[in-house]
Amino acid sequence: TSEDEWQCTECKKFNSPSKRYCFRCWALRKD
């Protein structure tokens, strides 16, 4: 669900929880 998505701190895109990197800008997920 969208509620589980995380928001990239670099480009603000919301990504799948299973992705460690942002799909748009490839920044590593910040915990």
Rank of each mutant, 00 (worst) to 15 (best):
K13W: 06
K19Y: 03
E3T: 09
S16C: 07
N15F: 07
L28G: 10
K30T: 12
T1L: 04
W26I: 03
K30V: 12
F23L: 10
K13T: 08
E5P: 07
C22S: 00
T9A: 06
C25T: 00
S2M: 05
W26C: 08
R24S: 14
T9C: 03
P17E: 13
F23D: 13
R29T: 09
K12L: 03
K30R: 12
K30G: 14
E10D: 13
C22N: 02
E5G: 09
E10M: 14
W6S: 07
R29A: 12
C22I: 00
S16Q: 08
K13A: 11
E3Q: 01
F14S: 06
S2N: 14
T9F: 12
Y21I: 12
C11F: 00
C22W: 00
P17S: 09
K19R: 13
F23T: 10
Q7M: 14
R29F: 04
A27T: 09
S2G: 08
A27Q: 10
C25L: 00
K13V: 08
K12N: 09
K19C: 12
S16V: 09
K13Q: 13
K30H: 07
K19F: 03
P17H: 11
D4A: 05
K13L: 12
S2L: 06
D4C: 02
P17F: 01
C25V: 00
A27Y: 04
R29D: 12
C22V: 00
F14D: 04
E5W: 10
R24Q: 11
R20N: 15
W26Q: 15
Y21V: 12
C11V: 00
D4M: 15
D4V: 07
C22G: 01
A27V: 10
E5H: 11
L28D: 13
F23A: 15
R24K: 08
D4N: 12
R24N: 13
D4E: 07
E10N: 12
K12M: 07
F14Q: 11
R29H: 11
S2K: 15
N15W: 07
F23C: 12
W26S: 15
R20M: 12
P17T: 04
Y21R: 14
N15V: 10
C11L: 00
R20F: 14
K19W: 05
K12W: 03
C8V: 01
C11G: 01
T1A: 03
K19M: 03
A27N: 13
K12V: 02
P17R: 02
K19E: 15
P17M: 09
K12S: 10
L28Y: 03
Y21H: 12
D4K: 03
R24M: 06
C8K: 01
A27F: 02
S16K: 05
E10W: 01
S18A: 14
K12Y: 03
W26P: 12
E10V: 06
E5K: 06
T9S: 04
F14N: 08
D31T: 07
E3G: 06
T9Q: 06
R20L: 14
E5A: 09
R24H: 15
R20P: 14
W6K: 03
K13E: 11
D31Y: 02
W6Y: 06
F14I: 11
K30Q: 15
T1W: 04
Q7K: 13
R20C: 07
L28F: 10
S16A: 13
T1D: 05
D4S: 06
E5I: 08
N15E: 14
E3D: 08
N15T: 11
Y21Q: 15
S18V: 05
C11Y: 00
A27L: 03
S2A: 08
K19I: 07
D31L: 02
P17W: 00
K30F: 08
D4P: 09
Q7Y: 03
R24I: 02
N15S: 10
D31R: 05
R29C: 05
K12A: 12
F23N: 05
E3N: 05
K13M: 11
T9N: 04
K30C: 03
E5F: 09
L28C: 11
R29Y: 07
E10F: 09
S16P: 11
T9Y: 07
R29E: 09
F14T: 14
D31F: 03
R20G: 13
L28P: 11
E10A: 04
T9P: 07
C25D: 03
K19P: 09
A27P: 10
Q7G: 02
A27M: 04
K13Y: 03
T9E: 06
K30A: 14
